[in-house]
Simulated assay, not measured.
Amino acid sequence: MVKRAENARERFEAAAYSLFRQQGYAATTVPEIAAEAGLTERTFYRYFTDKREVMFWRAGDHQVTIANEIARARAGVHPLTMVARAFESVAPFIDGHRAIVKLRQRLIFTHGDLQERELMKLHKLASAIDLALQQQGIRPSFSRAVAEIGAAIWKVALENWHADETEKPFSSHVQAALTEFQAGLHQVAG
Rank of each mutant, 00 (worst) to 15 (best):
E6L: 15
I149D: 00
A128T: 01
I138Q: 11
Q175N: 03
R72W: 07
R42Y: 06
Q115F: 15
E6I: 10
G76L: 05
D61L: 15
F12A: 15
F44Q: 08
R9I: 08
N68Y: 05
G24Q: 07
R4F: 06
G60T: 07
T28Q: 14
A5S: 14
M55W: 05
A157Q: 02
G24F: 08
E53A: 14
R139N: 08
K168G: 10
A91M: 04
K155F: 08
H62N: 11
V101P: 02
L119K: 12
R4A: 15
F44N: 09
V83N: 04
H78F: 07
R52G: 12
A59F: 10
K124V: 03
F20G: 03
Q22P: 09
L125E: 03
G184C: 11
H78P: 04
S171M: 02
Q23A: 07
S143T: 00
Y47L: 07
I94L: 15
R106I: 00
H173W: 11
V156L: 09
I66H: 06
E6P: 15
D130G: 03
V2F: 14
L119Y: 05
H62V: 02
Q136E: 13
A132E: 01
D130R: 02
M1G: 15
G60L: 15
P140M: 03
L119E: 09
H97K: 15
S172G: 04
T65C: 09
D130I: 01
G96A: 06
R139E: 11
V54Y: 06
K3G: 11
I100E: 07
S143R: 03
K102T: 01
I138C: 06
A132Q: 04
S89V: 03
T28L: 07
K124F: 05
K3C: 10
F93A: 14
A126R: 00
V64D: 03
A16L: 06
F142W: 06
F48P: 13
L39G: 10
K51D: 12
E167H: 07
T43V: 10
I100K: 11
L122D: 02
M1D: 13
R4E: 14
A86F: 02
E165N: 12
A67F: 04
L158R: 04
R52W: 09
E116P: 10
F44V: 05
G60M: 10
A128M: 06
L80D: 00
I94G: 01
A132N: 08
P140V: 00
R72Y: 08
E118L: 11
Q105C: 08
S127N: 13
K121F: 01
D113T: 09
V101H: 03
Y17L: 15
A84M: 08
G112L: 14
E159D: 09
A8L: 15
V101T: 02
Q63C: 08
N160E: 12
R85I: 01
R46N: 13
T81F: 04
A86D: 05
I138H: 04
I108C: 08
A91N: 08
Y17N: 09
S127Y: 06
A35M: 11
I138A: 06
V156K: 06
E13D: 12
P79Y: 02
V90L: 13
A147Y: 00
H123I: 01
R11V: 06
R21H: 03
F181S: 00
L133D: 01
D50R: 09
V188E: 06
L114H: 12
T43P: 10
L133W: 03
T166F: 05
H186Q: 15
Q187H: 12
K121P: 05
